[in-house]
């Protein structure tokens, strides 16, 4: 990827970060907490995938590297999700 591609990704990341703050500044967190929660977290996931895929070049690496990363992610999510569920 050349510098133009990297710049385009940067602009998207910057915009999404701003959008997350705007959700709060607009009062959505107070008026519709869980909708705001979902929106903000989805934006974070999209940004993270963007950084990993393009800045860390996961898109061009063998799939096994992606599975390695997903392994760690799934383990962390399993711990968080199951532990939180256990006390609901």
């Amino acid at each position: 990827m050349d510098w133009k591609g990297y710049t385009a990704i940067y602009v998207v990341l910057f915009t999404f970060a701003t959008a997350q703050a705007v959700v709060e500044f607009a009062g959505l967190v107070d008026s519709a907490y869980w909708a705001a929660f979902a929106l903000i977290m989805v934006l974070s996931v999209v940004k993270a995938v963007g950084v990993a895929a393009y800045y860390q070049h996961l898109r061009w690496e063998p799939r096994a590297v992606t599975y390695l990363v997903l392994g760690g992610t799934v383990a962390a999510l399993a711990l968080t999700g199951a532990a939180a569920y256990s006390i609901l």
């Binding site: 990363v69 392994g71 760690g72 383990a75 962390a76 999510l77 711990l79 968080t80 006390i87």
Partner: peptide, 19 residues
């Protein structure tokens, strides 16, 4: 490989916060 381990480290910190 190190970063995969670091994902779990931070995941456990964030998971602790969530818990």
């Amino acid at each position: 490989t190190f970063l995969a381990s670091d994902i779990v480290l931070f995941g456990a910190f964030i998971g602790s916060y969530a818990f």
